[in-house]
Amino acid sequence: MAVLAAPGTQPIRRLSSQPRVEAFTGQMFALPALLLIVGLLIVPILVVIVLGFSDYQLGAIEWSWIGLGNYQRMLDDPVFWRSISNTFLYVAAVVPGSVLSALVVAILVNDRKHFKSVYQIIYFLPVTTTLIAMSVVWHFVLNPQLGPIAGVLRALGLPPVDLFGDPDLVLIALSLIGIWQLVGFNMVLFLAGLTAIPHDLYDAAAIDGADHPWDRFARVTWPMLGPTTVFVVVTTTITAFRVFDTVAVITRGGPIGRSEVMLYDIYLEGFQYFEIGYASALTVVFLVVVVVLAVLQAFFLDRKVHY
């Protein structure tokens, strides 16, 4: 009987094991990437979430679980609320500012016949520089005593403006630097979007009567740039939320806390006051805010531009 059964069972086993072998091979190929994602993204995030429920301080020997204590503390922390509102104000200025000006610059540069690449390089230069170094430069340029801008103002007989020292102006000044830094990158993205628009569409529009610059923009250019715009807005939003370098170098959150932002707050709590537990909880809040906003934007905007 065993001899008889063998030929019958063997092919069946081979058939059923074949997909399993293929699946195993596939999983093995995906394993290195999976390990990296887990090790570099998932585990650190989990560690941060876990630490957020503790009162761990850097180098402390004794620490304990405090549940939602850190989050409770946040609610009563004026610095936390200031940094949230400052960050949102900064994002609200930088995103429209850098996206719209990048769009205008991209269209202008794209229409140029000569020196196109020269303009591209000029606008892209800020992207290639280190923002820390550039912050030092901006600090000097806008310095009310030593800076060239102040010198010009003095020569014109105007009072010097201390952009980083004035509580009402400091966020505007930081936003302008943020826009300056992002315009080049967004311009390159828009330029790529513009070159992808088929020229036939402009020809068809000209014959259909849409040859006024406004119509060309509103009927062809802008809708065709829709997917690019979604990408630009989402990436710009995330970048703007991560504002840190300029604050850390130029203002250190001042004057009177008017330029405190979320990442700077986390940095202070974690690396100046060594409150790792509290900094972790702040990081979780930051992460949730950014992810929720990015997903919402992608979801709503994507539906509008889908074709």
Binding site: D203, A204, A205, I207, G209, D211, V305
Partner: peptide, 28 residues
């Protein structure tokens, strides 16, 4: 082009991808 009262059909069709068929035809 729009004043010459000619219509053109392109090899690529050159339809406006973000508009409905009705809006495409209505464009001129």
């Amino acid at each position: 082009p729009k004043q010459r009262n000619v219509a053109m059909v392109f090899q690529s069709y050159a339809l406006y991808p973000h508009m409905s068929v009705a809006d495409n035809i209505a464009m001129p």
